[in-house]
């Protein structure tokens, strides 16, 4: 029980530190802005550890963070194989393919105001649907290996990217388009010099949404059949065989990959759209 009380005490102390930091005059410092949420996250881990150890929760139900870390360290080979299968082959291939196709399709339909008017509402609607449900169909079309997972990812990321790019290309104001007309600019020149740069914040919005969707698609598609590797495969079999710490280790990898991919896209966004008011602060 002392473990639990210790954890609770740590929680209170950390909360106190954060409160003081947030109210202090250093609260806008970069270091503080990073330290506060990190301490908050660490506190949650400590609480989790304290609850599991203090209340003697069976590892089959909820393993302690330290158990998960130990499993992680022991099973790095398995985790790596699954990472390659699910993330590198399934998710990334699908992501790159789906985003490119979505982007190019947007450029194509942009030439026709009629197509834009017709596809935008349809695309918006489809982007909100549980597209993940087509996973079993695509698995039956493309087989158990990573190709079917990449196909699921392509379909899932296509619509959000399409819709955002089309929306972004509409984002220039009439004055800027008039200016290009006074220069006698061609469609291609206006696209390259004005509309594409102006669309970039939207493009990246779509790309960011797509990163999370790509991982979801690649993992869930494995529930419907996969070779004997892959994160989704390991999670569903791990749950069945009660190897719960391994499942949590896979989830940790998934979380880390998701955050890293998102962070990477956000970083590129920061570099490309440095001029946008939201990035200037």
């Amino acid at each position: 029980m002392t473990v639990l009380y210790g954890a609770l005490a740590f929680w209170l102390a950390a909360w106190g530190v954060n409160t003081i930091l947030a109210r202090s005059r250093w609260s806008d410092l970069r270091a503080v802005r990073i330290f506060v949420p990190v301490l908050f996250g660490f506190t949650l881990l400590v609480l989790w550890q304290g609850l599991v150890r203090g209340l003697d929760v069976s590892p089959v139900i909820l393993p302690a963070p330290t158990d998960i870390a130990a499993t992680f360290a022991n099973e790095t080979d398995t985790l790596w194989v699954d990472f390659v299968q699910t993330v590198l082959k399934g998710a990334l291939t699908g992501y790159l393919l789906g985003c490119s196709v979505g982007f190019l399709t947007a450029l194509l339909i942009d030439r026709s105001a009629f197509l834009t008017a017709g596809l935008l509402p349809v695309g918006n609607f489809v982007a909100a649907l549980p597209i993940i449900g087509i996973a079993p169909i695509l698995v039956s079309w493309f087989g158990f290996d990573w190709h079917s997972k990449a196909a699921v990812v392509v379909v899932m990321v296509f619509f959000p990217v399409l819709v955002n790019v089309v929306q972004g290309l509409k984002e220039t104001d009439p004055m800027q388009r008039d200016l290009m007309r006074t220069y006698g600019a061609t469609y291609g020149q206006t696209l390259m010099k004005l509309r594409l740069p102006a669309a970039m914040p939207f493009v990246f919005n779509g790309l960011k949404i797509a990163t999370t969707l790509a991982l979801i698609g690649a993992i869930v598609a494995e529930y419907f059949g996969s070779p004997i590797r892959g994160m989704g495969f390991r999670i569903s079999t791990g749950v069945g065989s009660l190897n719960i710490p391994l499942v949590w280790a896979e989830i940790t990898v998934a979380a880390a990959v998701g955050t890293t991919l998102y962070g990477l896209v956000a970083l590129i966004e920061k570099i490309v759209t440095f001029w946008h008011p939201s990035q200037r602060v």
């Binding site: 139900i61 909820l62 993940i132 990163t211 999370t212 991982l215 979801i216 993992i219 869930v220 994160m231 989704g232 999670i235 569903s236 749950v239 719960i244 499942v247 949590w248 896979e250 989830i251 998934a254 979380a255 998701g258 955050t259 991919l261 998102y262 962070g263």
Partner: peptide, 14 residues
């Protein structure tokens, strides 16, 4: 940014 669905079977077990 975390693929929550990875957690779905877990939450059900839990």
């Amino acid at each position: 940014t975390i693929p929550i669905v990875a957690l779905a079977p877990m939450i059900i077990v839990l």
